[in-house]
């Protein structure tokens, strides 16, 4: 039983990877869109969900990742371009976070808002690096000397990176640094009283979250093959924040569920509209549903979709006679030491 639990997540990933190989291009595109958004959301969730710092600069940080990966990839760095992108975003995240170390909550949020706008401006102005407004054209990512172009291959790669990011974060939250983050989120004074170096803990959060975001940004670059300033605006930051809220802040399943929800909702509404031949009416409804759901979740279920899922699983398993636990239960019931759900 215990081994099954441990293996459930990798098995789930493996199945998704194999399944995405059989999908058409459109389906595979959706898979890598969701996977990449989930990597970004995992990064943000570390900062916001586990360390209590809300950030509106996520869109710009993804941009830093995409531009760095694009430049390095075009220069022939191969897979190292992704690592480089992570490092660049981590440094940027640190540069935003350091001066804001003594700011809390609201003021930190406004500081990141300022950072978002300043970075957007830099994307447009630093022509030698970003190619300005017309955008940086990015060569396909080269893995072992072969270009990765198909959406199916990109989906598999994105899923692999998502699994890596997830596993790393699971490990991190079990270390002392991870536990310190949770205490800082709850109360900085208490953390200080316990002898935790608050500043250093926050710096860890900024760097780690930035690195993971940079990896997501790199994959955005390699899938769209064009990094331009219009793609990394504030609305992308808002989307990312919405993902962790709808999914469930500070939960493990949250970023996955939130990313899937935010990326797939417009498509679902669009298809429904077409099926009933009212697509033109529904064009506006898409955003309305988005706004309304954010409000409703925050009002009635602050733990988001992951709490709903948990309830659903509990309800289903109460219907089942035996003690068999489904794979889903395992995924939605992670309880390592230091888990914020406890």
């Amino acid at each position: 039983m215990a081994t099954l639990r441990k293996l459930a997540v990798p098995i789930l990933f493996l199945v998704t990877m194999l399944a995405s190989l059989t999908l058409g291009r459109f389906g595979a595109y959706l898979v890598h869109s969701v996977a990449i958004a989930a990597i970004g959301a995992l990064g943000l969730n570390l900062l916001t969900g586990f360390c209590g710092q809300i950030s509106f600069a996520q869109g710009a940080l993804l941009g830093v990742g995409a531009y760095t990966a694009g430049n390095l990839g075009n220069a022939g760095w191969g897979i190292w371009a992704i690592v480089g992108a992570g490092v660049a975003s981590a440094m940027t995240s640190l540069a935003i976070g350091l001066p804001a170390l003594r700011l809390r909550g609201l003021y930190y949020a406004i500081a990141t808002l300022a950072a978002q706008f300043i970075l957007e401006y830099l994307f447009k102005i630093l022509e030698p690096i970003t190619n300005g407004i017309s955008g940086l054209l990015i060569q396909p990512l080269k893995l072992f000397g072969r270009p990765v172009v198909g959406d199916q291959a990109l989906a598999v790669l994105s899923l692999a990176l998502l699994l890596a990011a997830y596993s790393f974060l699971r490990w991190l939250m079990k270390t002392n640094v991870g536990r310190a983050m949770l205490i800082v989120r709850e109360n900085e004074l208490v953390a200080k009283g316990m002898g935790i170096d608050v500043a250093r803990t926050k710096i860890w959060a900024f760097v780690t979250s930035g690195f993971i975001t940079g990896v997501a940004g790199a994959m955005i670059g390699f899938t769209t093959r064009l990094a331009n300033p219009e793609a990394f605006q504030l609305s992308l930051s808002v989307d990312q924040v919405a993902m962790i809220i709808v999914g469930g802040q500070g939960t493990w399943a949250g970023p996955f569920l939130g990313a899937a929800f935010v990326v797939l909702l417009p498509e679902a509404i669009q298809r429904t509209g077409e099926a009933f031949d009212i697509a033109r009416l529904l064009f506006a409804l898409r955003d309305m549903a988005f706004g309304l759901l954010i409000i409703l979740f925050l009002l009635f279920e602050p733990r988001g979709l992951s709490a709903l899922l948990r309830r659903l699983v509990r309800w289903v398993s109460s219907l089942l006679p035996s003690t068999r636990t489904s794979v889903l239960t395992v995924k939605s019931h992670p309880s390592p030491p230091g888990d914020p759900n406890e």
């Binding site: 459109f26 595109y29 869109s33 769209t224 064009l226 793609a231 498509e267």
Partner: peptide, 28 residues
Amino acid sequence: YKLDEELKIYRRCVDQENAVFINGWSTG
């Protein structure tokens, strides 16, 4: 007028709708 949305639509048109001619939008 969002790049990711347009790229998604393009794939749908080519892959699912089997369009023989596509009329797209933005410069990006």
